[in-house]
């Protein structure tokens, strides 16, 4: 009995250790995004709150917390309130299986990839419910767009996962990372390059970021599915979006860029030189690179139109993944070194 309680307490501590830095990470990701975009657009970005504007995210959180939650009288109250929770829960729950370094995971389950995929698909329900419950035409259009887009891109994403599963022969995230041991050229990004690119594009589309942000396309349907939300209910959607961004970047780092492994492994001079760097640092650097890519995309590209996104998903990405899954199978069958041994 006492041991069980202790175990639960230990798990809760682990959850807190993951969630609190994650939320802080989201807060400073928004700051980082604003600063980086600011510099790309030849302006300064936030610099008023605190030194160099470092307290800006805190001020934003406080503002959102103290704002009134407006529930439109024509909406479905219960669903309206539940929708943001439906979005944030899977976004947070997915972090349970992420290994931050060897053995550093809340739950090291064998179906890790499947679990991530399942929770990733769940988040669309929150968006759908939000758009429907708001009883607003703009929100409804946004929800429809989001649903169609997420479902189409899930397929392409699923196929790129299939490639990984074939290559690694496992659904356990730890195993997948360990299979990539041996330095930069041994990671899966090279043999699975088309799948890597497809995964990244689908990941950007899944998180509704530019150039695929049609679900909330500001200049078309104002804010899409969360147009009626305010205060903390809006903040939850916002939080979920950014958590999912970090999530997609983390999965990309784990599956294609060797997770916490050092890129200099096996290189005569550099390898030992960087051997002291803990794996988690490498992982964070890789995640940071992907997040920067997210921001870079946002600053550069115009927005796709809704039907063009569908076309890209169905006619380009899915065929590419299908073909490459066959190629990977052949590679595994004939044991092409150094990746498929």
């Amino acid at each position: 009995m006492f041991n069980d309680l202790l175990l639960i307490l230990w798990i809760i501590i682990k959850i807190i250790v993951i969630v609190v830095p994650l939320l802080l990470g989201v807060a400073y990701l928004t700051f980082f995004e604003r600063k980086v975009i600011g510099l790309m657009q030849s302006r300064i970005g936030p610099n008023r709150v605190g030194p160099w504007g470092l307290l800006q995210p805190i001020a934003d959180v406080l503002k959102l917390l103290t704002k009134e939650i407006i529930i439109p009288s024509a909406s479905n109250r219960y669903l309206f309130v539940i929708a943001p929770m439906l979005t944030i829960t899977p976004a947070l729950a997915a972090w349970a299986v992420i290994p931050f370094s060897q053995g550093m995971a809340l739950a090291n389950i064998n179906a890790g990839v499947l679990y991530l995929f399942a929770l990733g698909s769940l988040s669309v329900y929150g968006v759908l419910v939000a758009g429907w419950a708001s009883n607003s035409k703009y929100a409804f259009l946004g929800a429809m767009r989001a649903a169609a887009q997420t479902i189409s891109y899930e397929i392409a994403m699923g196929f790129s996962f299939v490639g990984i599963l074939l290559a690694a022969g496992s659904m356990n995230l730890q195993d997948i990372v360990l299979k990539q041991q041996g330095g930069f050229w041994h990671w899966y990004w090279l043999p699975l390059l088309p799948l890597f690119v497809t995964y990244w594009i689908s990941g950007v589309a899944e998180t509704n970021r530019l150039p695929f942000d049609v679900a909330e396309g500001e200049s078309e349907i104002v804010a899409g599915f969360h147009v009626e939300y305010s205060g903390i209910t809006f903040a939850l959607f916002f939080l979920a979006e950014y958590i999912n961004m970090i999530m997609v970047s983390t999965i990309a780092a784990l599956l294609f860029l060797g997770g916490w492994l050092s890129p200099f492994e096996g290189i005569p001079l550099l390898g030992p030189l960087f051997a002291w760097v803990p794996g988690i640092i490498w992982l964070f650097l890789k995640i940071g690179g992907f997040l920067f890519l997210y921001i870079w995309l946002r600053a550069t590209f115009p927005r796709y139109r809704y039907d063009q996104i569908m076309r890209l998903g169905w006619k380009v990405l899915i065929p590419v993944t299908l073909v490459w899954v066959v190629v990977v199978s052949l590679g595994v069958e004939f044991k092409i070194a150094p990746w498929f041994i």
């Binding site: 975009i37 657009q41 530019l210 200049s219 550069t300 115009p302």
Partner: peptide
């Protein structure tokens, strides 16, 4: 025009 089509940076340039 660019902002409406989603390219935010041109606006500031």
């Amino acid at each position: 025009h660019a902002l409406d089509i989603g390219a935010m940076t041109v606006f500031l340039y």
